[in-house]
Amino acid sequence: MVRSREVRILDVIFQILWAVAFFNSPIKITGIRKDIDLPKKLICRNTVQGRYKLADDNGYICTALSVSPWTRCCPESGERFSCQGCNLISKCCNSYEYCVSCCLNPSMTQEDLVLKLKIAKPVTAGTHSSIFDFCSGRCRHNSANVVHENAYSSDFHHCYFLQTNSSGLIGPNFERRLTGIDILIGKQGESCNLACISKGQSCVSNKLSVINSCELLEKYMSCKGSCFASMGADQPAEVVNNAPKHMYPGACLYSQTDSMLSCEGFHPQTKRLCPCA
Score class of each variant (00 low, 15 high):
residue 164 T to K: 10
residue 267 H to R: 07
residue 146 V to R: 11
residue 239 V to N: 00
residue 145 N to A: 09
residue 5 R to F: 10
residue 189 G to D: 03
residue 69 P to D: 06
residue 217 L to K: 01
residue 112 D to N: 14
residue 154 S to P: 03
residue 1 M to S: 14
residue 68 S to L: 08
residue 264 E to K: 15
residue 62 C to F: 03
residue 35 D to L: 13
residue 275 P to Y: 01
residue 26 P to Q: 05
residue 261 L to Y: 02
residue 192 C to G: 00
residue 101 S to W: 04
residue 246 H to E: 09
residue 145 N to V: 09
residue 153 S to M: 13
residue 272 R to E: 03
residue 207 K to W: 03
residue 38 L to D: 11
residue 215 E to H: 06
residue 122 P to R: 08
residue 241 N to R: 09
residue 106 P to A: 07
residue 203 C to A: 04
residue 202 S to K: 14
residue 123 V to Y: 12
residue 118 K to P: 10
residue 277 A to Q: 14
residue 231 M to T: 09
residue 157 H to P: 00
residue 114 V to S: 01
residue 167 S to Y: 08
residue 128 H to D: 08
residue 199 K to P: 07
residue 28 K to R: 11
residue 157 H to I: 06
residue 204 V to M: 06
residue 215 E to G: 04
residue 190 E to Q: 12
residue 252 C to T: 02
residue 202 S to A: 13
residue 143 S to W: 14
residue 239 V to G: 01
residue 18 W to R: 14
residue 248 Y to T: 09
residue 104 L to T: 03
residue 90 S to Q: 05
residue 201 Q to C: 07
residue 29 I to R: 13
residue 196 C to G: 02
residue 65 L to M: 14
residue 161 F to M: 08
residue 58 N to T: 10
residue 115 L to G: 02
residue 204 V to Y: 03
residue 71 T to K: 06
residue 148 H to G: 09
residue 213 S to I: 04
residue 52 Y to H: 15
residue 121 K to M: 08
residue 5 R to G: 06
residue 178 L to I: 05
residue 53 K to Y: 15
residue 124 T to E: 14
residue 96 Y to L: 13
residue 190 E to N: 06
residue 159 C to F: 04
residue 11 D to S: 13
residue 250 G to L: 02
residue 133 D to E: 15
residue 53 K to C: 12
residue 269 Q to K: 10
residue 115 L to P: 01
residue 142 N to H: 12
residue 83 C to K: 07
residue 115 L to Y: 02
residue 202 S to Y: 15
residue 32 I to M: 11
residue 3 R to L: 12
residue 116 K to I: 05
residue 87 N to A: 07
residue 14 F to K: 11
residue 231 M to E: 10
residue 211 I to K: 00
residue 214 C to T: 03
residue 204 V to K: 02
residue 187 K to G: 09
residue 170 I to L: 14
residue 97 E to P: 04
residue 80 R to D: 05
residue 197 I to E: 15
residue 225 G to H: 05
residue 134 F to P: 01
residue 117 L to Q: 11
residue 70 W to P: 08
residue 275 P to H: 00
residue 27 I to L: 12
residue 60 Y to A: 05
residue 91 K to N: 11
